[in-house]
Simulated assay, not measured.
Amino acid sequence: MIRLLLASGLALALSVPAAAQSAEERLADYRQRVERLEDQNAIEVLQATYGYYFDKGMWSEVADLFAPDARFEYGARGVYVGRDRIRHSLLLFGPERLAPGHLNNHMQLQAVVQVADDGMTATGRWQGMIMLSERGANAIWGVGIYENDYVKINGTWHIAELHFYVTGMTDYDAGWMRSAIPMEGQSALFPPDEPPSERYRSFPQNYIPEFSYPHPVTGEPIDVVQPRDDISGRD
C-alpha cells in the first residue's frame, strides 16, 4: 500500500505541467509522507511486539525493545531508568518465561501514533486490556492507558518511555461493581530509580491520562479535567 502511494505520487508529480522545481518539491513531499507512514507502521509493530513478549514473560526480549536510556513506569510502581534496570524490574511481574497455569495477557488497542516531522521521535497512546490468572487463585481483569514516547536509533525505532496508567483492576468473578483492586506500589525488593511521576488512584476513581496529541478535528490541545480526589491531591 505504501509503495502504491509513492508510485501514485510520483506519477502525479510528473504528470502535472509545472516547473521542474515544483515537480521535485511535490515528489519530496510525497516521499516524506510515505516515510512517516512507514515510521507509524514500524512503531505499531514495535508496540504490538512488546505486548506479545510481555504476555509470555519474555523479559530479555522486552527489554531489548527499549532505548539504552529509556524510562519504564507501570502504574504506581515508580520509574525505572535504563535498559538494564528495566530488564531486572520486569522480574517483579514473574520469572523469565510464563509459568504453567499462568495467564498474563496485555493487549495493545486503539493506537494513536504521532510521528515528528523529522521522523526521529514519536508519541503513542494505546488502550490496554489485561487478563491475569494463576493456578489456584481467581482471575483478574484490568484496563489502562499507555502514553509512550519513541525514538529512532540508527534507523530502528525503540521505546524511549513507556508509561502504563493502570486505570482499573477487578476480580474476574466479582466484577467491576463489587471489586476494585488497588494498584501495587513501589517494590522494597527492587526499588525504582524515581517515585511515580503522577499521583492518582485507579477505579473507582476515573483518572484520565493527559493526551499527547491535539484534537484531530479542531487541532486544539485536549483539556483534561480530572475528577476530584482529596487523597491524590486533586481537591
Rank of each mutant, 00 (worst) to 15 (best):
M1K: 02
M1Y: 04
L5F: 08
L5N: 03
L6H: 04
A7C: 07
L12N: 02
L14I: 08
S15N: 06
V16H: 07
V16F: 04
V16L: 12
A18I: 12
A18G: 09
A19I: 02
S22E: 15
A23Y: 00
E24K: 14
E24P: 00
L27Y: 11
A28R: 15
Y30D: 04
Y30V: 15
Q32F: 00
L37P: 01
E38D: 15
E38K: 15
D39E: 06
N41I: 09
A42M: 11
I43K: 06
L46G: 08
L46C: 11
A48K: 04
A48M: 05
T49P: 00
T49Y: 07
G51P: 03
F54S: 06
F54Y: 15
F54N: 08
F54Q: 11
K56T: 13
G57L: 02
G57Y: 09
G57W: 09
M58C: 12
W59G: 08
E61D: 14
A63N: 05
A67H: 06
A67Q: 12
P68S: 04
P68Y: 03
D69Y: 09
F72A: 10
Y74V: 14
Y80T: 01
R83S: 07
L90K: 05
F93N: 13
P95A: 15
P95G: 08
L98F: 05
A99H: 06
P100N: 12
P100W: 13
H102T: 13
N104K: 14
H106G: 04
H106S: 11
Q110R: 09
Q110C: 06
V112S: 02
V112H: 03
V113I: 15
V113K: 01
A116Q: 07
D117K: 10
D117T: 05
D118C: 01
M120W: 02
M120C: 06
G124W: 09
G128L: 08
G128K: 00
M129D: 01
A137Q: 14
A139Q: 02
G144T: 06
Y146S: 06
N148G: 09
N148L: 07
D149G: 11
Y150L: 10
Y150C: 03
Y150V: 04
V151L: 10
N154K: 14
G155C: 07
T156D: 07
T156M: 09
L162P: 00
H163A: 10
F164L: 15
Y165E: 02
V166R: 05
G168L: 04
M169G: 04
T170L: 00
T170G: 05
D171F: 05
D171T: 06
D171L: 10
D173N: 12
D173P: 00
W176H: 06
I181L: 15
M183K: 05
G185V: 04
G185W: 05
G185R: 08
Q186A: 14
Q186C: 11
S187K: 07
S187T: 14
A188K: 13
A188F: 11
F190C: 00
F190E: 09
P192A: 14
P196R: 12
Y200F: 15
Y200R: 05
S202N: 14
S202G: 12
N206A: 13
Y207A: 07
P209F: 03
S212N: 04
Y213T: 13
P214M: 11
H215V: 03
V217S: 01
G219R: 04
G219P: 02
G219M: 09
E220L: 13
D223W: 06
V225L: 13
D229L: 07
D229W: 04
D230V: 13
D230E: 15
D230C: 01
I231M: 13
R234G: 00
D235M: 08
